[in-house]
């Protein structure tokens, strides 16, 4: 029984607690329900949606690396139309905040999706994916250039009354410049990091291991990079932050909050421990109680003091 006040306010988005499921790791939330009821979570960030359905990249899509995982799924998803037709009642039944991740290939794609999703009941926020490393055009192209990032966020902002989250890529020279651009564009919240671009080679066949050649690295291996970027973005922009990248244990969540994240999202850790978000919440609550924090929000940014 939690005695800590676990509610968090991230600008216009209020969540029952600061532990979410990260986009791409959780599909549309249903597969994990038998292991970790979605109603325990602060929210789920669903699989990245594109305007048209996508079959995704050819196999192999995964390669395990030391304390990490490379993936190149390539935004496989049912597409905007099918999502709106079939998914909203199923998502509402999960009884958690549903954050819809959108990915486009042009500025108009993002605006069109934001407009179409604004009328759908039960969506708590939009997460604008300007950071997918696994598709050839778009995605990361918007996340690596401050002017392009500002333009996409501006178009989404103008298209929707929903809270807008800008999901940033770590594959950039200056994360603070991108964060400031997202803020100027009108984002309400910043989420980071998406995966780090990487690759693996099969020494038997002497060929790249992934069908897409390169992929995105996630898991415990990337946590120090993610934490550093959350810390830097906290200093660069005034927006609330959802921190992600290797969050596997409650101690990781505490570190991200101390670095400045108002909430965290759990991705790859679910693959090893399907109950990871619930375990993290329990540990976070115990940490707050043992250290005299009545509200989990009191932890946010303490490492900067």
């Amino acid at each position: 029984m939690a005695v800590t006040d676990m509610r968090v306010a991230l600008g216009p988005l209020t969540l029952r607690n600061p532990v979410l499921a990260a986009s791409g790791a959780y599909n549309f939330g249903e597969e994990y329900a038998p292991y970790c009821p979605a109603s325990l979570l602060g929210g789920i960030m669903v699989k990245g949606l594109t305007p048209q359905p996508r079959l995704g990249n050819p196999p192999p899509r995964l390669a395990e690396t030391p304390a990490g995982l490379l993936n190149a799924v390539g935004l496989e998803n049912p597409g905007l139309e099918e999502f709106i037709r079939s998914y909203p009642p199923r998502l509402r039944a999960l009884d958690t905040a549903v954050i819809v991740n959108i990915a486009g290939f042009t500025v108009e794609d993002y605006a069109l999706m934001a407009r179409a999703l604004s009328g759908v009941e039960g969506i708590a926020a939009l997460e604008v994916n300007i950071s997918c490393p696994n598709v050839k055009h778009g995605g990361l192209a918007f996340g690596a250039d401050p002017a392009a990032a500002e333009e996409v966020l501006g178009a989404v902002r103008a298209a929707t009354p929903l809270p807008v989250i800008a999901k940033l890529s770590p594959n950039v020279a200056d994360i603070q410049a991108i964060a400031r651009a997202a803020e100027r564009g009108g984002a309400d919240i910043i989420s980071l990091i998406n995966t780090l671009l990487g690759m693996a080679i099969d020494i038997g066949s002497r060929r790249p291991l992934l069908g897409n050649i390169t992929g995105g690295l996630s898991g415990p291996a990337v946590k120090p990079v993610a934490l550093r970027m959350v810390y830097q973005v906290y200093e660069a922009a005034r927006l609330p932050i959802i921190g992600m990248g290797g969050v596997s244990k409650w101690e990781d969540a505490v570190e991200f909050l101390l670095a400045g994240a108002g909430a965290v999202a759990v991705g790859t850790a679910n693959f090893t421990n399907p109950r990871a978000p619930a375990d993290i919440l329990r540990g976070l609550d115990a940490y707050c109680r043992e250290n005299g924090f009545a509200k989990v929000e009191e932890l946010v940014g303490l490492a900067h003091k």
Binding site: G24, A25, Y26, N27, E31, Y32, Y35, K47, G56, P59, P60, R61, L62, A63, E64, L69, N71, V73, E76, T268, N270, F271, P274
Partner: peptide, 14 residues
């Protein structure tokens, strides 16, 4: 194939 989640969520084995 190489699998991550094993329960249909990550689409990695597809």
């Amino acid at each position: 194939t190489t699998m991550a989640c094993g329960i249909g969520a990550c689409l990695g084995c597809a």
